[in-house]
């Protein structure tokens, strides 16, 4: 079955990589990062859990959410464009400033669009990775056709 070390790494690293992805997303407007990269990093975190737990278990956990996630992402991206119409035109950048204590948080439609991109990329990339590992697992399983495969 799956390796204990990989499962341990998965347990520790996957949440950290997910956090890195969210951080990359948040800093993306002014600094290197952004929705596309964040989505790929997020998918990398899931790939780690595919390696540790196998594609089947991962599909059971995330599989049903993937296609709707792509739908939500596309929807969010379009809505980000439509909000702009309120400000004069499609995709017009609109900003709100939130004050939490002393720190200022600037939120805007470009970030909302980026969020949509991130969701689409996560959905697409994980679907793709799951298909690949399912095919790879099926290919490695057939020749031995049983337990006892040594590495």
């Amino acid at each position: 079955m799956t390796e204990i070390y990989l499962r341990l790494v998965d347990l520790i690293l996957t949440p950290i990589i997910m956090l890195i992805a969210i951080m990359l997303f948040l800093r993306g407007h002014d600094l290197p990062g952004g929705g596309f990269i964040a989505g790929l990093v997020f998918a990398a975190a899931i790939e780690l859990s595919i390696l540790a737990r196998g594609a089947e278990a991962t599909r059971e956990r995330y599989g049903p959410w993937l296609a709707p996630l792509i739908g939500v992402g596309l929807g969010v991206a379009v809505v980000a464009g439509l909000i702009g119409i309120y400000g004069g035109g499609f995709f017009r950048g609109m900003w709100v400033e939130l004050y939490i204590g002393a720190s200022k948080l600037k939120l805007g439609t470009p970030q909302l669009f980026d969020l949509g991109v991130m969701l689409v990329v996560i959905g697409m990339a994980i679907t793709y990775l799951l298909r690949l590992s399912e095919a790879a697992e099926a290919a490695t399983r057939t020749p031995t056709a049983g337990e006892g495969g040594q590495s």
């Binding site: 792509i70 939500v72 929807g75 439509l82 035109g89 499609f90």
Partner: peptide
Amino acid sequence: HPTVLALPVALPLIFGALGMLFQSA
């Protein structure tokens, strides 16, 4: 209004995205 030119892209995208939401139904 020139903004209608967003629609040829936005319309199919919106309905496609709505369809994708039901991909797990």
